[in-house]
């Protein structure tokens, strides 16, 4: 099993899978779960040149997340 990194550390143009959350019981994780950030879901960073908020592509849609809050999301490179 490769080690997971936090979502803001993703590189543009690489593919990742959602691995989980630093705190699975938080409101934030609950919210993102419902938006489709479930384990194994493919996620990429949109090639938008803005550092914060981040634009994330997931399940065919695009979601903006604050860098700091997104530290709670863990991803694994495919």
């Amino acid at each position: 099993m490769s080690t997971s990194i936090t979502l803001p550390n993703m590189l543009i143009s690489k593919l990742y899978n959602v691995a989980g959350f630093t705190n699975e019981a938080s409101d934030y994780s609950r919210k993102l779960h419902k938006m489709g950030f479930t384990p194994g879901t493919e996620v990429t960073l949109a090639p938008v040149k803005m550092s914060d908020p981040l634009i994330v592509q997931i399940r065919g849609g695009r979601v903006a997340l604050r860098k700091k809050e997104a530290q709670q999301v863990l991803v694994k490179e495919i």
Partner: peptide
Amino acid sequence: TLFKGTPSHFVMDL
């Protein structure tokens, strides 16, 4: 004061 409480997260669908 009036509106204490946890600020909401920012998660926005584009």
